[in-house]
Simulated scan of single mutants.
Amino acid sequence: MNILTFDSGDKLNEAGANIIAGLIQTQPTAVLGLATGGTPVGIYERLVSGFRRGLLSFRGVTAFNLDEYVGLDRQHPQSYYSYMQKHLFAHIDLPAEQAHIPDGNAADLQAECERYDRLIAEAGQIDLQLLGIGHNGHIGFNEPAHALIRGTHVVDLAEETRKANARFFGSADEVPKQAITMGVGTILKAKTILLVVRGADKADIVRRALTGPITTECPASLLQTHPHLVVLLDKDAAGRLP
């Protein structure tokens, strides 16, 4: 585990973007696992800037997003399809057929989960998986539970998760109750995991995930078992680490 702490958001964003850009520059056909939410926005902005400056191309990259809400049309402003278009995909040369996001409106959600797992398997091992962490320790939308599911699956979102995501909607009632998420088993198969966390409100869960017992009640704690985990923290998120 390699933990890096930064005294500014700009430096953290630059470090995260440099790790991803460096992989693409040395491995143009890299397979990326991508995340959404507020955490990676600044990283995506720097990747877009690097593309516009001619420093990197995404033409050979294949990307798989971690998750998508169930029941939101992909054109809904809070769908993760819309998020990725807004913050990254619409601004780079990644071919649309190589940018994969689960279909939360699929008629058969189980079949969609199986299709998504097949696509990941056909692409080969994910080279780098970008992750954030929820206040309850979820990664992707893998919520705390007595047991975790390895592959892509439909999950009932915890009320804590829905409340945390309400800031993106009009109210907590508008946040979907389910999502499709990549499973923990798939996440842990990535060659490198890049965990990015910001803010004092995440300090407790960062400490628990990185230094506490490994348990499915804190899915992020399973990251301790990964052989190549890189953690980027701002000074506030690192505040409770020993």
Rank of each mutant, 00 (worst) to 15 (best):
M84C: 10
H153A: 11
G124C: 04
L233N: 04
L222K: 06
D156M: 12
G124M: 08
P28M: 05
I43N: 02
L233G: 04
N18P: 01
C218Y: 00
Y44F: 10
L109G: 03
L88S: 01
A190L: 07
A203D: 02
L188K: 07
N142C: 06
F51E: 09
G132H: 01
K189W: 06
A172Q: 12
A17W: 02
G16S: 10
A63S: 14
A147T: 13
K11G: 14
L94T: 00
Q78G: 01
A172S: 06
L131K: 06
A30V: 10
G38K: 15
T5A: 09
Q129V: 00
I20L: 11
I126P: 02
R59Y: 02
Y116T: 02
L32M: 07
V154D: 05
L34F: 00
D236I: 07
L229A: 05
T215E: 11
L94W: 00
A147V: 09
G42M: 09
I180M: 11
T26K: 14
K191L: 12
L12G: 00
D10G: 13
D127M: 06
L148Y: 04
G104S: 06
G9H: 15
G124L: 06
A209Y: 07
V175N: 02
G183D: 08
G124E: 10
I19L: 13
D236P: 00
R53E: 15
L210F: 10
L241Y: 04
T5L: 04
F6V: 07
L195H: 10
D204W: 10
N165C: 08
D93V: 09
G37S: 03
A63Y: 05
